[in-house]
Design a protein around this nucleic acid. Structure first.
Length: 374
DNA sequence: GTAACGATCTGGTACCCTCT
DNA sequence: AGAGGGTACCAGATCGTTAC
């Protein structure tokens, strides 16, 4: 991100990284991160001194507190394309479409599940984009999101038995955690992870599998969706892929974090405080009922209320800035490095309200912590 | 077979500039 | 002011190679 020779004489853009620094930031691969300034480098190093990486290969099982394993989706968009079926084919076979699942009235096991692609997912949203009748993708509308029965339409479907077979050694859950492989460090947001139903998934939406409680996984989703983590991730993504080796070396709070409570969680554990918010954000449609139930929530899907979602997401972001040990000044600096978020906020609301609200919430958290210490 | 990842292609949007 | 063109950005899909 030094674009001209003049940048080389800018003292804020000139800094040194020692071998120890590089080993701190990318212990598995010793890859050199891409910092834009000395300030970025120093703040990132301070985060890595406090927060462990997701999978530290040199530490064996102890280096994988989440018991996590990865897989490039369930189907390779190139080599598995022979298994993909279009709506026309399935209709011609006499199958009936229910939601986004094609069913055979005579043979219950012969169903075809949607094949999700990464672009259909976004933060806390498994209904971000859908295919239309013409075969083009479009964003899901607000009215559609507000309908808990609405489901996205994929480009292809895959046989349910193929999905089950590929999942049988990986997960017994009826939901998955996927993230976008294709991303850039100058996109609006870089790390985009989401809970999605247990369906077919293309290789550009890699999946994470765990041996942890669903509520803890919900907390991980919030962590992966936080500005704090995203800011760090941007120094790690050099090309256009969020490869496994990059994901594994992101600073991610360990599951044990969520067993404790904070002054601002009102007596609840962090796990309860965070996971209840994640369920509220994710469980907006009936096709994620299994996820809500696994997290201990028995109610109906939450209505899609943009203002409420904004508030809850700001709460989560404020929480993760605090959990990452960032001061309000540091959080403000981090949020100023998301120009597209800022620009869209200003265009729609007249100011960078995401930043304003997160900082307000951080201030409130700090004063409740201070009150508790008295 | 899985994973990392480059090359190329597609189709879209956003924004800026110039010309009329 | 509006039309048209150019360019950058965005988000993939597809195909291929290499390594293990």
């Amino acid at each position: 991100f030094a674009h001209s020779d003049a940048d080389l004489s800018d003292e804020t853009k000139r800094f040194a990284l020692s071998p120890t620094d590089i080993a701190l930031l990318n212990p598995n691969t010793k890859t050199c991160p891409i910092f834009r300034s000395a300030q970025d480098a120093e703040l990132t190093k301070s985060i890595y001194r406090r927060v462990p990486i997701l999978v530290n290969e040199s530490k064996g099982e102890a280096g994988n507190a989440w018991g996590i394993s990865f897989r490039q989706g369930l189907f390779n968009m190139t080599s598995d394309s022979g298994l993909f079926r279009s709506a026309e084919e399935l209709e011609a076979r006499g199958l009936k479409l229910e939601g986004n699942v094609w069913r055979d009235e005579e043979n219950e096991s012969a169903a075809f599940l949607p094949l999700y692609e990464a672009k259909m997912l976004h933060h806390f949203d498994h209904r971000w984009a859908t295919y239309d009748e013409a075969g083009d993708t479009r964003d899901v509308t607000l009215a559609e999101k507000q309908n808990a029965d609405f489901v996205v339409t994929p480009r292809y479907w895959v046989e349910k038995s193929n999905v089950e077979e590929r999942l049988k050694d990986k997960s017994d859950k009826e939901w998955l955690l996927g993230f976008r492989d294709i991303c850039r460090n100058n996109d609006e947001r870089t790390v985009i992870a989401s809970i999605l139903p247990s369906v077919g998934v293309g290789n550009n939406a890699p999946l994470m599998f765990f041996d942890k409680e669903p509520r803890q996984v919900a907390c991980l989703v919030a962590n992966l969706s936080s500005f704090a983590l995203d800011w760090v991730a941007r120094f790690k993504v050099g090309g256009v892929h969020l490869n496994f080796f990059i994901a594994q070396q992101l600073p991610v709070l360990p599951p044990s974090t969520y067993a404790s409570s904070a002054a601002w969680t009102d007596g609840a554990t962090l796990g309860e405080w965070i996971s209840s918010r994640v369920v509220e954000l994710c469980f907006t449609a009936h096709d994620l009922t299994a996820f809500a139930r696994d997290c201990g929530f028995d109610g109906e899907p939450f209505g899609w209320d943009a203002e409420r979602r904004f508030e809850v997401r700001c709460e989560l972001d404020a929480a993760f800035f605090a959990l990452y040990g960032l001061s309000m000044d540091e959080a403000a600096y981090v949020l100023d490095t998301f120009p597209i978020v800022k620009r869209k906020d200003e265009a729609k609301f007249g100011s960078y309200r995401t930043k304003t609200r997160i900082l307000e919430l951080m201030a409130a958290m700090q004063s409740s912590s201070a009150a508790k210490n008295v």
